[in-house]
Simulated scan of single mutants.
Amino acid sequence: MSHIGNLLASRMFRPILAGATLRERLIACLGALIGIALTGLVSGWIVGEGPHIPLIVAPMGATAVLLFAVPASPLAQPWPIIGGNTISALIGVTAAYFIPHPVLAIGVGVSLAIAAMSLTRCLHPPGGAAALTALIGGSAVTSSGFLFPFVPVCLNSIILVGLGIVFHRLSGRTYPHRPAAAPANLHGTADLPPPLRVGFNAGDVDAALQSLNETLDIDRTDLDRLLREVESQAMTRTHGTLDCGTVMSRDMVTIGVDEPIAKARRLLLLHNIRTLPVVDGEGRLAGTLGLRELALHGDGAIAQVMSEARTAMADEPVLSLVDALSDGRTHAVVVTAEDRSIRGIVTQTDLLALLMRLVSTKVFEVPTPHRA
C-alpha cells in the first residue's frame, strides 16, 4: 500500500514546471495559506470590515500562486505584483468611468492594462483580473471609485509581497529573485571573461529565442546560466568517472596560519606555485595564500591576508571545477575531507592537462566501422 501511495503522490504532483518538486509545492501551499489569510486580516484591521469595501480582492489568489509557487519568475517579483495590480486596477476604474458600454469597457480595460504593464515593466497576469474586477466588481467597487486601485488593491499587494519576503527567507529561498551575475573580466581589459569566449554567447541565445518564436517565463540572465549549467552537466556525465581524487596533486606545500609572511613568499617562489594552502594548528584548511594577496598586503599576519579557499571533495567530478578555475581569480581548488583536512589540490595546470588529454583522445579515436 505504501508503494501505491507513493506512486499516486508522484503522479498527482508530477511537476508542471521545470525544477518543481513535491516539497516545493507543499511550501507554496503553506505560503499561500499564510499569505492570503494574513493579507485579509491586516487589510481588515487597516480599512475596517464592512460591505463598503472588500477586505481582499480575488486577483490576490492568482498573485499568491505566482509569489509562492514560482518566486523566481519575472512575473512574481515585487514591482510586477504591486505595480501590475495597481496600474491595471486604475485603468479598469478609468475605463468604467469613461466607457458606458460594459462589454466594450471590459475589453478596453484589460487590453490597456496589458499595454500599460508592458510599458512600465511590471507585467503580472493577475493584473488583468484586477482590471476586470474594477469593471465588474459591483457596488463596493463603484462606491470606492478611484480609491479602489489603492485600497484595497495596492494595499493587498504590498502586504502580500511583504509576507512573501518574510516567508521565503524563513523557508530558505531567496526573494526577491536576483539573477546570477554574469562572469566578469577581472583583468581590466576589453576581452570577454574566459567562460564566455567559448561555446554559445548572448547573441546565440537571442537568435534561438527568435527562431522558436516563443516568450519564456524566465529571466534572460537565468536562461543563460541554465544553458551553461546544462553544458557543464553534460560534460560531467560524459566523463563522470574522472574525479578530483584521480587528478589531484597529493604532495602539497602548505603553510601554518601563524607562520611569517616572508616564509609564504619564499615557498611560493621556491616551488613555482601560485596558491599556498594555509592550515591551522590541527592541520585543517584555513584558507589560501598567493602572490596576489602578498602584493596587496605585504605585511601582517597570514590569518589577516589569506583568502577563503575554494574546495571540493575527492569523489566530485573534476570537470565540475571548470567554472571555478576559469573565473579569472581562482588558480587552484583544494580537495578536502569532511573535517577539512587536506587530501590534495587541483590546479589550473592539472585541469588543462586533463582537458588536452580528453580532446586528443576524442580526435584520434578510431571510429567503429559501420555495418549494414
Results as ranks from 00 to 15, higher is better:
M1G: 13
I4D: 07
I4P: 00
S10Q: 12
M12S: 14
L26E: 11
C29T: 14
G35Q: 02
I36H: 03
T39Y: 01
G40Q: 01
G40T: 00
H52R: 14
P54Q: 11
L55G: 01
P59W: 05
G61Q: 02
T63G: 02
V70T: 14
V70S: 10
A72H: 01
A76L: 08
P80W: 00
V93F: 11
A95H: 13
A96F: 09
Y97W: 15
A105P: 00
I106A: 05
A116T: 04
A130P: 02
A130L: 01
A131L: 10
T133K: 08
A134F: 04
S139K: 14
V141S: 03
L147R: 08
V151P: 00
V151N: 01
V151L: 07
P152G: 05
V153I: 07
G162I: 03
V166R: 12
S171Y: 12
G172T: 03
A190S: 09
R197W: 15
F200K: 03
A207I: 11
A208R: 09
L209F: 06
E214D: 08
D217N: 13
R225T: 10
E229Q: 10
E229G: 07
V230D: 01
T236A: 08
R237G: 08
G240N: 15
D243F: 11
V247A: 04
M248N: 14
S249V: 12
G256E: 04
I261C: 08
A262D: 08
K263A: 14
K263Y: 14
L267E: 15
L269C: 12
L270S: 13
R274D: 11
P277N: 10
G283Y: 09
R284L: 08
A286M: 08
G287N: 07
G287M: 05
R292N: 04
R292I: 02
L294R: 01
L296E: 15
M306K: 15
S307D: 13
R310G: 05
D315W: 06
P317W: 10
D323H: 09
S326P: 00
S326Y: 06
G328D: 02
H331F: 13
H331Q: 15
V333D: 06
A337Q: 09
A337W: 07
R343A: 06
G344I: 13
I345H: 02
L355V: 15
L355Y: 05
S360Q: 13
F364W: 09
F364I: 04
E365I: 01
A372Q: 00
